[in-house]
Design a protein around this nucleic acid. Structure first.
Lengths: 158, 158
DNA sequence: CTTGGTGCAAATGTTTTGCATAAGC
DNA sequence: GCTTATGCAAAACATTTGCACCAAG
């Protein structure tokens, strides 16, 4: 059952309710959050930096990184950790991702088999003594574009 | 059903059978392979470098990285990709891992719920057009040592 | 003797951080 | 005004790579 993703899953203002960590609402933080909402194809930190830079030419990389970490700690955005650099997702509901081994492109991996048992986290906590356990399911493969590129380079060498 | 891990899952010599890529059997490559067999607690590349260095004081980091990549491409060892740096595993059978968010310590996540459906990869291939799809299930949490450290620093600030 | 591998050092790419200044609240 | 956040540049970090030399087969 694909989720309706037309509307944002949460608004920037609704984050103020999370009183646990009292944080200031800066223009830069709002811009970073809106960038992730707008760039819906799993942007990297640098994609987001370039996007916010096109709106505010003075924002710095450090600020973008600090706010991406902060927003993902708060659960406002999702940090998709893949080899080669993190990607970010406006969709914070649990879902798996698929990353290209060659070019690093990230897409969602939906479908009924792309899930982890509900009590896996609790089971791992009980067996290991670790606390606050969560999980991420990551698929890797070759994207269509890279399949073609590799095939062409094989033909050339043959 | 925990696997008997007393014996190595594969020997260095048995890799020669993989004729697909003809490679030379260097002393350094053998040393790196043996290090992963010996260091059975998910060593990092640097752990492995330090270990082989204690045997051959002239081996270089570049060689260790090159051979770790080569051996994991061949399937002789497993590359456990976690934030903060890859770890390596002599156990190449499919199993999930648990990494501490605070210190990066890696342990196995065994148990019946720590698995992914068998046809997940095929399902993802069919739905996305990606090829050669594989997957990795990674749990994250706080290890017992870091739980205690965090608790102590909370008490101090209170 | 040919080709792939090594050692070294430098480069790469991503992310973090120290510090002085600016801006929330 | 007290404190958090920013911008900048430098640092940190894991990893890769160019190149001259070495060694496996």
């Amino acid at each position: 059952v694909p989720l309706c993703l037309d509307a944002p899953l949460c608004t920037f203002d609704s984050l103020e309710g999370m009183a646990s960590m009292q944080r200031r609402n800066t223009r830069q933080r709002q811009l970073v959050f809106e960038a992730v909402q707008h760039l819906r194809n799993h942007p990297t930190a640098d994609d987001i930096y370039l996007y916010v830079r096109s709106i505010d030419s003075k924002i710095s990389r450090g600020t973008v990184y600090r706010n991406l970490n902060l927003l993902s700690d708060q659960g406002a955005i999702l940090d998709v950790r893949v080899p080669g650099g993190d990607h970010f997702d406006f969709n914070t509901t649990e879902h798996a991702h698929l990353v290209c081994r060659e070019c690093g492109a990230v897409v969602d991996a939906l479908g009924p088999a792309c899930t982890v048992s509900e009590d896996a986290d609790a089971q791992v906590e009980a067996q290991t003594g670790y606390s606050e356990v969560g999980h991420a399911l990551l698929f890797t493969g070759l994207c269509p574009a890279c399949q073609q590129k590799l095939q062409e380079s094989e033909e050339k060498s043959a």
